[in-house]
């Protein structure tokens, strides 16, 4: 993505992405999602709307779920990023993925990486899961295929049933 011949301003950024340190010189305007997909080849993160509504592009930035389509990569110099490609690296992550599959939480799979990253964050962050917080988080993801029943079931089974 940086082959433009009039070479606009380039910035050096360093991040830890899925546990690996990376360093790149990028255009200032490069979005995080394009940095991940194009510079690093991590294409599991998907662009569904490019303005932060649909949630498909969700990744974890310093452990917090964030929309990679409305963040500039250069703003995140020094950050730790986790994407869908890293989830299966841990046993707990594998359990979450298996639960998603078992509960039929996906059909076409395009929105799925974003939903999974939100669930990974909730699973880690919330000690006493709060029903409203979980619902709000899942409502931040649009899925056009499943009608959400399988997603909700996967969330429930992962976090423990919370008043649904």
């Amino acid at each position: 993505m940086n082959s433009s011949a009039d070479s606009p301003t380039r910035l050096d950024v360093e991040m830890v992405v899925n546990g690996e340190p990376v360093r790149r010189a990028i255009e200032a305007r490069t979005l995080l999602i394009d940095f991940l997909r194009t510079e690093l080849g991590l294409t599991g993160t998907h662009n569904g709307c490019s303005y932060g509504v649909c949630g498909a592009c969700t990744v974890l930035v310093n452990g917090v779920a964030a929309r990679s389509c409305i963040a500039l990569a250069a703003q995140l110099d020094g950050a730790t990023i986790e994407t869908i490609e890293s989830v299966s690296h841990t046993e707990r992550g594998q359990e979450i993925l298996e639960t998603f599959s078992r509960c039929r939480g996906l059909q076409c799979g395009f929105c799925t990486p974003g939903v999974v990253m939100t669930l990974v964050e909730l699973d880690r962050r919330i000690e006493t899961p709060n029903r409203d917080e979980i619902e709000d988080s899942i409502d931040g993801h649009l899925c056009r295929c499943t009608g959400y029943a399988g997603i909700k079931e996967a969330v429930d089974q992962t976090l423990g049933r919370v008043g649904r």
């Binding site: 294409t43 869908i84 299966s88 594998q94 599959s101 996906l106 799979g109």
Partner: peptide
């Protein structure tokens, strides 16, 4: 890992191949 649908392993681990994921 155990997956219910045969599609699920690649789609859940970020290895699906939608058209924009293919770079040449």
């Amino acid at each position: 890992m155990k997956f219910t649908r045969r599609e699920d392993e690649r789609l859940l681990t970020g290895r699906g191949r939608y058209v924009d994921d293919i770079d040449v």
